[in-house]
Nucleic acid binder design. Structure first.
Length: 455
RNA sequence: GGCGCGGUGGCAGAAUGGUGAUGUAGAGGACUGCAAAUCCUCGUAUCCGGGUUCGAUUCCCGGCCGUGCCUCCA
């Protein structure tokens, strides 16, 4: 069986992936907090783990991929106050938009997409377990995780306790036993979202929801936990602390998830997106301007751990690459193929199995597209390889804009131009080309006659 | 300040201790009435300085530059 190699953030090494249970691979990736339109950083995470799930499915019989929706968070409360909309209206709205936008990028919905608000009892149970084991304490309606109680804390991000304190710029709440302690549960005012708990009316802190949802839907330990690189600290560090300590695994960082996979950032203009710079790129806007598939290819054009600087020029270039690949498929449109094979191409597969080396995989895809020893093989392989990457599954004629049926004006002009050409009236033929262009089409003369293509 | 990542052709971007992929842009050519597409050809690309080595873009050390995390963040 082919083996996947993945860079494990926990060990800082590329490792061979060995599932805990080869008959059922379990993956969790931190999803979005739904209070605004998804930006391209959210999209990169979704595309990367969608691809990882595809690759795992190609070599293991069963894969469960869980990615959550965080629908309780102070940022959502702020957004609600600003817009005047109810919190659940906002979260449902942006959850829906998130899923629609990701679908436009060819991202399949995760096998399970749990909502934080539907796992409050599990979070409360985790808090209770942590208190019982002496890893958490109550103070003024808060439940706090006591960081010094977990000696292995900081192992994922490589931070010693001294460094954390030295680097801390946050005000330390007076009720904290230790400056590094973080909130598991906090009190809510009557007008804030909250749930009854042993510590009064309150709501979860930021990190506990992922611990609860991952455990509920995958069981512990599970195989791979993923997310954006910025989540490593403190979010993932704290997830590990909560989940390991709640189950008495005080000395084993991998008792929660065996491997940690982090995707790199998307930058705009060489800098991280931020509100102050005003350089946020939203998926919602980009897919108005470009096909979602072009954006997906752009997101896959750099290795997932590398930073990716996204520009519109780059998306446009991806579009041109897809044009060429779809043209290859269009040229093979009459070639009959049997069902696509599970393994597209050995080199292609090896590229992806080597820590999801998508640039290499795309290079192989290009080679397949230009080297055509056997048309049926070529078509089959392109479709299979493209499918693995979430690309090339559309109708080539439609993608290329050859589908002009029903446009009588264009068809009439094409016929007229054919006549003009037959009469060697090239002046008129060129005029018609301009007229058709004004209608939004370009004319391509082919052995089968002229074709209009939507620009 | 602490920790990390990166600097490869115009641009994007892999890989590698010994002929440096792939794409895109550009140039030339074939084909075409002209185009488009396709095909062929082309380009003095591994940040700088040391070290290890028969050999370094690759490994090590030191610079310089860029960027990220340390605070909400995918």
């Amino acid at each position: 069986m082919p083996k996947l190699r993945l860079y494990n953030s926990l060990t800082r090494k590329k490792e061979e992936f060995t599932p805990l249970d080869p008959s059922h691979v379990r993956v969790y990736a931190c999803g979005p907090t739904v209070y605004n339109y998804a930006h391209i950083g959210n999209a990169r995470m979704a595309v990367v783990f969608d691809l990882l799930a595809n690759v795992l499915r190609s070599i293991y019989p069963k894969v469960t991929y869980v990615s959550n929706i965080t629908d309780v968070d102070d940022k959502i409360m702020v957004a609600a106050k600003e817009s005047g909309e109810a919190i659940d209206v906002i979260t449902r709205k942006f959850e829906k938009i998130y899923n629609e936008d990701m679908a436009a990028l060819g991202v399949a919905k995760p096998d399970v997409q749990p909502r934080a608000t539907e796992h409050i009892p599990e979070m409360i149970a985790l808090c209770e377990a942590l208190i019982k084991r002496g890893h958490a304490y109550e103070a003024e309606g808060n439940v706090l995780f006591n960081v010094p109680s977990f000696a292995a804390y900081g192992g994922l991000s490589g931070r010693s306790r001294d460094e954390q304190i030295a680097g801390a710029r946050v005000d330390v709440a007076p009720y904290k036993k230790d400056p590094a302690d973080f909130v598991l549960w906090k009190p809510s005012a009557a007008d804030q979202p909250g749930w009854d708990s042993p510590w009064g009316f309150g709501r979860p802190g930021w990190h506990i929801e992922c611990s609860a949802m991952a455990e509920k839907h995958l069981g512990l330990p599970f195989d791979i936990h993923g997310g954006g690189a910025d989540l490593k600290f403190p979010h993932h560090e704290n997830e590990i602390a909560q989940s390991c300590c709640a189950h008495g695994k005080d000395d084993d960082l991998s008792a929660f998830a065996k491997m940690w996979v982090h995707n790199g950032f998307v930058t705009v203009g060489g800098e991280k997106m931020s509100k102050s710079l005003g350089n946020f790129l939203l998926v919602h806007d980009l897919i108005e301007e470009f096909p979602g598939e072009a954006l997906r290819l752009t997101l896959l054009s750099a290795h997932y751990r590398q930073p990716l600087d996204l520009t519109k020029e780059k998306i446009a270039e991806s579009k041109r690459i897809l044009d060429r690949l779809y043209r290859t498929l269009y040229d093979l449109r009459d070639v009959q193929i049997s069902k696509s094979p599970a393994v597209a191409d050995i080199e292609f597969q090896e590229a992806l199995l080597d820590d999801l080396n998508t640039p290499q995989a795309i290079a192989v895809l290009n080679q397949i597209s230009s080297a055509s020893a056997n048309d049926a093989e070529e078509k089959k392989t392109l479709l299979a390889a493209g499918g693995m990457l979430g690309l090339l599954q559309q109708n080539p004629a439609k993608w290329l804009g050859y589908d002009v049926s029903g446009d009588n004006d264009v068809e009439k002009l094409l016929a007229e131009r054919t006549e003009a050409k037959a009469a060697k009236n090239f002046k008129r033929a060129d005029e018609i080309r301009d007229e058709v262009k004004a209608l939004g089409f370009t004319i391509e003369d082919t052995p089968e006659g002229p074709k209009a293509r939507k620009i």
